[in-house]
C-alpha cells in the first residue's frame, strides 16, 4: 500500500506538462492526483527540488487550499465570491452546513462529504454556483439545493 502511494506521487510529479517545474507545481500536481498531500510527498518533492522537507512544508502549509489528510468521498465547494454572495450564497451555505451538521469547512463525520469554500470558480454570470465533485451546478435556489445535492451524490455512489 505504502509503495502504491509513492509511485502515484512519483507519477504525478514526473508527468507535469509545463516546462518550469517548481516546488509549488509539484505540490499542486500531487494534490490533483491524490486529492491531498501525503507525508511521503513532502520528502519526494524535497529531494526533487534539492531542498529540505521543512522548506517544502513551509510552502505547503502556507496555502489553505492544500489538505494533508485524505479527502472525503465527495467534495462540495460553495462559491462565496462577491457575485454569488449577492445572489444568496450565504443562505445556500447555511442550508448545506445544517444538512451536513458542519459548522464551517471540513469533512462530515462519516467521511462521505468534504465541504469547502471557494472564492470564485469563474461562472459569475450564473451565480450562485456550487460544484459537486468538480461539476458546477448553477443558478440554484436554496430550497432546491439539498435535493440536487442528494440526487447527484446518489447518482455517483450507486
Amino acid at each position: 500500500m505504502a509503495e502504491d502511494i509513492k509511485s502515484q506521487i512519483q507519477r504525478a510529479i514526473n508527468s507535469q506538462p509545463q516546462k518550469t517545474v517548481t516546488m509549488l507545481s509539484c505540490l499542486l500536481a500531487v494534490h490533483d492526483e491524490c486529492g491531498f498531500i501525503p507525508t511521503e510527498a513532502i520528502e519526494i518533492i524535497a529531494s526533487k527540488n534539492d531542498t529540505s522537507i521543512n522548506d517544502v512544508w513551509a510552502v505547503a502549509s502556507f496555502y489553505t487550499n492544500f489538505r494533508f489528510t485524505p479527502p472525503a468521498k465527495n467534495i462540495i465547494e460553495i462559491c462565496w465570491g462577491p457575485t454569488c454572495h449577492l445572489m444568496g450564497a450565504q443562505q445556500i451555505l447555511s442550508a448545506v452546513q445544517d444538512n451536513l451538521s458542519l459548522e464551517s469547512e471540513g469533512d462530515t463525520e462519516d467521511g462521505f462529504v468534504s465541504l469547502k469554500y471557494n472564492t470564485c470558480i469563474g461562472a459569475c454570470s450564473q451565480a450562485p454556483v456550487i460544484t459537486i465533485n468538480h461539476h458546477p451546478v448553477h443558478s440554484i435556489s436554496t430550497d432546491k439545493i439539498l435535493e440536487k445535492i442528494n440526487k447527484e451524490l446518489k447518482r455517483k455512489n450507486d
Binding site: 507525508t39 522537507i53 521543512n54 512544508w57 502556507f62
Partner: peptide
C-alpha cells in the same frame, strides 16, 4: 510555517 498572523518557526509536520 503557515501564514500571516499564525506564522511561526517550525519543522515539517
Amino acid at each position: 510555517i503557515e501564514r500571516s498572523g499564525t506564522v511561526l518557526v517550525g519543522t515539517s509536520h
